[in-house]
Amino acid sequence: MSFADTKSPAPREGFIRVRNLRKAYQERRKARRDPEYPSPRYGEDILILDGVDIDIDEGEIVCILGPSGCGKSTLLRIIAGFDTSYTGEVSIAGRKVAGPSPHHIFVFQQSGLLDWMTVGGNVGLGLRRMKDKAAKREKVAEYLELVDLAGFEDHYPFQLSGGMQRRVELARAMAVSPEVLFMDEPFTGLDFLTHMRMREEVLNLHEYLRKTIVMVTHDIEDALIMGDRIVIFGNRPTRVKLARKLEFPRPRDVSSDPDLAELRRQVYLMMGVHYAL
């Protein structure tokens, strides 16, 4: 198998650059949400992201943490090119992000598999322009094997469990060999063990393929175990509260590494959880 580029140049610093990103939504609800608190009126702009700066190096796993509704998913969608109504500068590899691209694959929070296609069809989605059908089939099989789903080509998504569906989506994303992988809370809705296994799976894939992964999560453990860098958001309008490179050795274990445990305590505090952990 030949997944990793052996002759790849040194990872580029500042691979993804976000500068002074501002994003506002227009209030679409006519009914007041809560009469106790002043809420925006219909048609008023609500500032979501207020001058966000982020730098991400090539090959890093970056975990974006923040309270719900703080705009982390919005940020991810903007960097991935799905949302272009913002001010500020967003670029990947020196090029301004103009729209979604097969080089930047987004893994959706709920399954993004095309339900009418088989697993093989889904994984081959990014390879559909390949002329050599046999080579394409082989590549699909390789990536399915990579996520432990060898032989599931002819199954339909509805025949798979939730965890298997996520793995198929990972395989589909990896198969196009993207520059960046975006993941929006990729482990939600999985049971505890499946969650742990998926986390391991993503880390193994990253170890192997060294793709830049930008992941939004609300799970502090996930961020501390997986992240080469964590970015923490505050409440709306959102600014970056903390951006930090994590240079802890892997595999990481919060309970045995006192520095990591201390960082976890700080992160919990930062996110408004005060009781002992």
Binding site: P100, H104, I105, Q110, G112
Partner: peptide, 19 residues
């Protein structure tokens, strides 16, 4: 989500219909 996947994988107009 399907349409976002289609945009992400650069579906052509014809593929939008057929796939």
């Amino acid at each position: 989500t399907y349409f976002q996947v289609a945009a992400n994988f650069a579906f052509s107009r014809y593929e939008m219909l057929s796939l």
